[in-house]
């Protein structure tokens, strides 16, 4: 049994919150650079250049890339041979509290969905645990802004809707999101499982590299086809018209029930932040 101190987890989470909100990962930067070169609309190109300058200023002056520094979503993969000295959940929340208060990040979480009093430290995080083999601990933090989160959808399709129904659902979600979701977007899709499983798959899909494809051929083909179709909607950077509406479409799948075809579309803006640590 491997022992990990809760304080080590807290330190890592604090660093991850600050890092993710000031620096995008290389795959996202590359996707934005490619888009800025290929965009057909002059105004769209201007917006994409503005976003590239924004990334530069964020990193140099330590100003968060976006003022919505998100709700902290944490994926935990913990080996079954690991013992955490202390509470894993408390350690993660303490890391979020320290990261958001000491890192000058915005506190965007309210304690109750209706009374709406701000918790003042951006806690609690939304934590998803996965117990795996071995003695590793992998943390993936994805601070999620709500401009795009609000435009996300779950569709409970019928098996008869098939491939065309899935594609139509994804396009519908993207078109409805339009300028509200701060395009160019990254589109995370979950197909299969149950109501909550497909939503979780869609969220997890957003943490996959923007230049990656699924190992399953039909899924990889659908990712490419949908990216092309989304970029033909004309929505464009900032929703101001153009040929770059999405930077990537990432799809994850799971077995499902004989009666169902759940599809979740989790939309993320171009500030698709994540930070990964293995302890």
């Amino acid at each position: 049994m491997r022992e990990i101190d809760a304080s080590k987890i807290t330190d890592a989470v604090k660093e991850m919150c600050i890092e993710a909100n000031h620096y995008l990962t290389e795959d996202m930067k590359k996707a934005l650079n490619n888009a800025a070169e290929e965009e057909r609309s002059p105004l769209g190109k201007q917006v994409l250049c503005h976003l590239q300058d924004n990334l530069k200023i964020a990193a140099e002056d330590m100003i968060p890339i976006c003022q919505d520094t998100g709700m902290a979503v944490m994926f935990v993969e913990i080996g079954q041979d690991v013992h955490v000295n202390g509470s894993l959940k408390d350690a993660i929340n303490e890391g979020v509290r320290l990261g958001y208060t000491e890192g000058y990040l915005r506190k965007s979480v309210v304690r109750d969905p209706l009374d709406r009093v701000n918790t003042g430290d951006n806690t609690p995080a939304v934590i998803h645990y996965d117990i795996v083999q071995g003695d590793g601990l992998k943390l993936t933090l994805a601070p999620k802004g709500f401009g795009s989160e609000n435009m996300s959808r779950v569709f409970m399709l019928k098996p008869a809707d098939g491939e065309e129904g899935v594609k139509e659902a994804i396009l519908t979600a993207v078109k409805d999101a339009g300028p509200n979701a701060c395009p160019p977007m990254v589109v995370g899709v979950g197909i299969g499982g149950t109501f909550e499983k497909c939503a979780l798959l869609a969220k997890k899909a957003l943490t996959r590299s923007a230049d990656s494809h699924s190992d399953i051929k039909w899924v990889a083909d659908m990712e490419s086809e949908l990216l092309d179709k989304i970029n033909k909607t004309g929505i464009g950077p900032g929703g101001l018209g153009g040929s770059t509406t999405a930077l990537a479409v990432n799809i994850e799948t799971y077995p499902t029930h004989i009666a169902g075809l759940p599809v979740a579309v989790n939309i993320c803006c171009h500030v698709n932040r994540h930070s990964v640590r293995e302890l």
């Binding site: 503005h50 976003l51 990334l55 200023i57 968060p64 890339i65 401009g147 300028p179 701060c182 900032g238």
Partner: peptide, 8 residues
């Protein structure tokens, strides 16, 4: 421009 908070 949404998501350009640092430059704004």
């Amino acid at each position: 421009v949404g998501g350009a908070g640092a430059i704004i």
